[in-house]
Amino acid sequence: MREGFQDDLDRLDGKLATMADAAAEAMRRATQALLTADLPLAEQVLSADDELDQLRAACEEDAYALLALQAPVARDLRGVLAVVYCAEKVERMGDLAAHIAGTVRRRHPDPTVPAELEAVFAELGRETAGMADRVAGLIRAGGQGGYAELSRTDETIDALHARVLATITAPSWPHDQRIAVALTLVTRFYERFADQAVSVSKRLDFAATGDLPG
């Protein structure tokens, strides 16, 4: 029974890792759409979000079935419960990428990001998508040891977020205030995406070790 349970848990982890892969790809595409005002690409991100929702539902269904049929304890129980917790967080990451794509849709055909902030948002996109990639790798590798690394990256995201806010609230800001409002929301989506990735890594570390980092 133990071997069969481990196979089921490995498959469950695989679904969760696939979700993290999808969240990373969604963030890459959303950022590209944001920087290029590419409406068709933004629509792809919005459409793909439904698939991530379905993956979350499948993860939860499988996890609850394992809990009911196998009654795991200790590390096994932490592993199953971590999938339920993390699936919700990763789905939220996908939602946040979709929110960025939704901004592209609302602003189209006008661009959202002015030229002087393009590099900052490109970096936000690279760093946050990389965090989702790292989450996927942690899930596939057993979940331990990523919290400190992702927390450091989160600090980078926070600094970029602050940089955007400082720019758009400066007296010298030359653009329409509607653009400033849109950018305030968008940079917050990146910041929250990073927070969710850190939260996932923290729970994965706990599932693997029984100790909550922080």
Score class of each variant (00 low, 15 high):
151 S>V: 02
150 L>F: 09
146 G>C: 01
125 G>N: 09
125 G>Q: 02
128 T>V: 15
137 G>R: 04
157 I>S: 07
120 V>I: 10
145 G>E: 10
117 L>P: 11
126 R>N: 11
109 P>F: 11
111 P>M: 05
148 A>V: 14
139 I>L: 03
149 E>V: 11
158 D>M: 05
149 E>A: 04
159 A>E: 12
141 A>K: 03
130 G>M: 10
123 E>Y: 00
156 T>Q: 07
158 D>G: 08
159 A>L: 12
125 G>W: 07
129 A>H: 14
116 E>S: 13
120 V>F: 00
140 R>A: 15
119 A>W: 01
118 E>M: 09
109 P>I: 09
122 A>V: 00
147 Y>M: 11
150 L>T: 01
108 H>Q: 05
147 Y>I: 06
144 Q>R: 15
111 P>C: 11
126 R>L: 14
138 L>A: 10
137 G>P: 02
150 L>V: 11
129 A>W: 08
152 R>K: 13
145 G>N: 08
160 L>Q: 03
115 A>Y: 01
112 T>P: 12
140 R>N: 06
153 T>K: 14
109 P>G: 07
115 A>P: 06
131 M>P: 12
131 M>W: 15
148 A>I: 03
151 S>W: 09
118 E>W: 00
127 E>M: 10
126 R>F: 10
116 E>R: 10
155 E>K: 14
131 M>F: 12
161 H>V: 00
110 D>C: 04
149 E>C: 01
108 H>V: 05
110 D>A: 15
113 V>F: 12
150 L>R: 03
114 P>K: 09
157 I>G: 07
129 A>N: 12
142 G>T: 04
120 V>H: 01
110 D>I: 07
151 S>H: 09
159 A>N: 06
123 E>F: 10
113 V>I: 12
139 I>D: 13
158 D>K: 08
118 E>I: 01
136 A>R: 07
133 D>K: 11
114 P>A: 15
129 A>L: 07
122 A>C: 02
109 P>E: 06
139 I>A: 05
151 S>T: 12
151 S>C: 07
124 L>D: 00
150 L>K: 06
126 R>K: 13
113 V>C: 12
115 A>G: 12
117 L>H: 02
127 E>D: 15
154 D>Q: 06
121 F>R: 05
152 R>S: 15
124 L>M: 10
122 A>H: 10
155 E>H: 13
135 V>Q: 00
118 E>Y: 01
